[in-house]
Computed example of a mutant assay.
Amino acid sequence: MAGTIPPAQPPPGPRLGPPPGTRPWHWRSNPLRRPTDRLQARLGLGLLLAVLAVAPVAGAVVADLAHRHYADAARHQTLTRHETSATLTEDVPRHPEPGSDEAKLARYPAEVRFTTPDGRTATTRAEVPPGLSAGTPVRIWVTADGEASEPPLTREEVRSRSMGCALLAAVGIALTGAAAHAVTRHAVRRRNLAAWERAWAETAPRWTTPG
């Protein structure tokens, strides 16, 4: 019947999937899309998923190995090094900015004299604060051979070095994935160019008009 108003229709349901035009062009249904384009997109996605899966595992494994290594090193250093009193045998140069934060952290090599556990007097060169005069007592760490050394690694240093190794491992995995993607992309691009040249060699003669 003319002029009859049609009954109301329910609103359309929610659209499944992303809106048109939001997907990368490699994944769209496009007559210009080549098989190599889809291959490149799949390889890129596969490499991304592989990096996301492998990087945390590699970081955890490297962190555990590094922690064991540095913990063993710290225990060995604790057994083979000891702190002792020593006396400077020469003046230590002054820092250019005395009293500054940099001066408080600066250390200069200087000759010191100390007594070994067996009662002998020995000399060695150790890192000491700046501005000290000869004869000033200082505390140094020495090895069983009487050589100056750094203090044994602390728990915080062991932990920070382990985490640093884990971070380097994760970054290395990510860089490896990026390099693999770049190589793959270059290979696909060269293949596309070669296919284009072959297609053009077949098509160009039909477009050429006699002179």
Rank of each mutant, 00 (worst) to 15 (best):
T87H: 07
R113Q: 06
P129A: 12
L16I: 13
A122P: 00
P117K: 11
R75T: 13
P14S: 04
A126P: 00
G146M: 04
A178V: 03
E127V: 02
I140G: 04
R190A: 05
L32R: 15
A170C: 02
T209E: 13
T136L: 00
G21T: 02
L43A: 08
A60M: 13
R189G: 03
L16F: 08
W141M: 07
T124G: 01
L47D: 03
W25N: 07
E97R: 15
A180Y: 02
R75A: 15
L39Q: 07
G3W: 08
A179Q: 02
L48E: 06
L153R: 15
H82Y: 13
G44C: 03
M163C: 02
R42Y: 12
G13P: 10
T143Y: 04
Q9R: 13
A60P: 03
P14R: 09
R125C: 00
R191K: 12
S160H: 10
T154P: 09
A134K: 07
H67G: 14
P109M: 03
G172H: 01
P152V: 12
T84R: 04
T87R: 10
H95Y: 14
D37G: 10
A126L: 03
A174W: 05
A199M: 09
P152Q: 06
R68P: 00
I140T: 03
T176K: 00
A148I: 01
E127I: 04
R125Y: 01
D101S: 15
H67Q: 14
V92H: 11
V92D: 15
A50G: 07
A170D: 03
P12N: 08
V128Y: 06
A144R: 15
A187F: 04
L52K: 13
A169G: 02
R34S: 13
Q77L: 11
A201E: 02
W200M: 08
R159C: 02
R15H: 08
L132Y: 09
L47W: 05
W207R: 03
M1I: 06
A2K: 14
I5R: 15
A201V: 00
A2M: 12
W27I: 07
A71L: 14
L39V: 10
V188S: 06
H67M: 10
